[in-house]
Simulated scan of single mutants.
Amino acid sequence: MVERANKPSALAATPGLPPQAQVNISDDNSMVTAQLPTGETIEILLHGATILSWKDAAGDEKLWLSENAKLDGSGPARGGIPLVFPVFGTNSGHAVEKLPQHGFARNSRWEFLGKSTSEGATAGVKLDFGLSSQNLDEATRKLWPYAFGLIYSVTLDRESLNTTLVITNDGEVPFEFQTLLHTYFKVNDIESVQVTGLEDSPYVDKLDGLKVKNQSGTVTFTGETDRVYTPAKGPSHPIVISDGGKPRFRIVRDNLDDAVVFNPWVDKANSLADFTPKDGWRKMVCVEPGSVSKWQTLEKGDAFEAAQTIYLE
């Protein structure tokens, strides 16, 4: 064989693909889990498309979930991030008044539509879920007889969690709705929690006859709290949850004008059968971006899109 004077060196090995997020569906097809290459994880229950768990790379849980939360589809899960649609609370005298509290989205079986991943330093993952009027049982369709579609996207990155909801009117007539992301944050001690970003904002006090009041400073907690704020500085201005004097979570809203702040305290927690442990109120606070102080009207063929992004501080 003739030896070439300038024989090329061996080709470099083809570089392997960068690490990708791992996404799994449970054996009983009830839950979707994802883990980033850097260790962050998320768990979503297909019943309600409820986010049950969000952990950082060190395994530190960010969401509060009742030890007695319903995970078998027998009812909505208490804790995590349930989805509220098409009504917040109950609303007598309205077309939704016969629906269960907070509507049917958190108590319906959603479809997992698939995943998409991003590469590079963040290596995030987006999980998509869907619910439509065709997925509802006959009894619910009779109570709310509108053709609709919901696409819920959950994007996990190293230091943030984004939840985006797209609502479409697939029918021939307009409908009205409210929606909210009912986020339960895990904290060390509610009595040392402060919420900023709501200063000088009006709110409806649900514990005081729905009186409209004004927030004069930082929100702190000394008893049961259930308020619907319309933050004065708009959705893009962050709401920050601090715990023990240290910022923990920064929430930025998109097209969600309101924010509900809730803690059940002693008596309310004791009255809720699925709230355990009974002193769990000390370890949680709800700050819930939503569109609930008024009704949104969606015309035939139109869509409404809204989101929250929670950043770890």
Rank of each mutant, 00 (worst) to 15 (best):
K233R: 08
D28E: 15
K300Y: 03
A49W: 00
D28I: 15
K70S: 04
A269I: 12
F275C: 09
V219T: 11
V195F: 07
N29Y: 09
E176W: 01
E97T: 01
A57Y: 05
D170Y: 06
G130M: 04
F88T: 03
L312E: 05
D267R: 09
A77T: 08
A259N: 05
L46K: 05
Y311N: 14
G209W: 00
F221C: 10
G103E: 00
E305R: 15
A307P: 05
G280C: 12
V287E: 08
E172N: 14
T164S: 15
V87F: 03
Y203F: 12
V260D: 10
A273K: 15
E172K: 14
A123E: 09
V240R: 04
I239M: 07
F185S: 10
L131Q: 04
G39E: 05
G130S: 07
P231T: 00
E176Q: 14
W54V: 01
D302F: 06
F85C: 09
A273W: 08
E199M: 12
Q35H: 04
I25L: 15
I44L: 07
N270R: 14
N107Q: 15
T155K: 15
F249P: 11
T90R: 12
V204D: 07
G245D: 07
W265R: 12
L63M: 01
P174S: 11
T38M: 11
T196N: 13
T230R: 14
L180D: 05
L46P: 00
P8C: 01
K55I: 00
E61M: 01
N91G: 03
N29D: 14
V285I: 15
V173S: 13
T218H: 10
G73V: 03
L156I: 05
T38S: 15
L83R: 08
N91E: 12
T196R: 13
H237W: 03
P277W: 10
G79T: 06
E3Y: 08
L165V: 04
S26H: 12
